[in-house]
Design a protein around this nucleic acid. Structure first.
Lengths: 111, 111
DNA sequence: TATCAATACCTTGTTAAACAAGATAGTGAA
DNA sequence: TTCACTATCTTGTTTAACAAGGTATTGATA
């Protein structure tokens, strides 16, 4: 719908892997974290399909853990395949983002 | 299909507008230009739908011009609405790209 | 003449992923 | 008992890249 949602296509996997790499998280809090850093539209409707996809591909593993308050939480951990995948995604990102940056930067430089 | 193709979602319009802003171009050569700067998969199957979409929205206008060798060329020019749209797209890009960059940058900093 | 490559336009169909909307359920406070 | 917050997940819609194909012009080569 939004331009924002289109711009995230193909990079959500990378974002999720990057967060999980730092420390294992569960879906609900992952969504909040991504919103906090500026990806404001990343709600649960986005995050859970991504987590399922990544788990199916073997890049993360989920483990249910009891919670003292509220429903149980499914924590996700990065696998070594997931780490490799993250490297690839970051490389691709650089390959795509840098020509776009150049295209967008050299403009209005009449100062 | 490719990760690359997903990463370009929602940003092709901006890329095309940015190129046309510098100088009017026709579709065939626009595709080559974008490939040259690193967007290697941007073929005519990508470019012509984008040009039609942008024209329908009033961001560019096309004008057929005779060619001495080969088929005629349809040159596209940026409108003032197109310029405004480009500004918006670049702003959105910055809003999305910068948190992603941060997520990807602060890694492997054990040097 | 026929054929090929390069140039140049365009359309159709497939596919993937974000995400809005909704369903379900546990805890605890008012 | 009603509400808010936490937490999981699914379904359906939408959008845009782009692979594949089609048409036509010019000019070179066989």
């Amino acid at each position: 719908m939004t331009l924002r949602s289109q711009l995230l296509k193909g990079i959500m996997d990378g974002c999720v892997l990057a967060v999980i790499e730092k420390e294992p998280v569960y879906g609900y809090v992952l969504s909040k974290k991504l919103q906090d850093i500026g990806l404001v539209d990343v709600t649960e409707g986005t995050i859970y399909p991504v987590l399922l996809r990544l788990q199916k591909k073997g890049f993360i593993v989920g483990e249910m853990q009891p919670s003292e308050a509220g429903p149980n939480r499914k924590y996700y951990y990065l696998t070594s395949e997931g780490k490799e995948e993250l490297e690839l995604i970051i490389e691709e990102w650089d390959n795509i983002a840098s020509p776009i940056e150049k295209l967008f930067k050299r403009r209005g430089n009449n100062a």
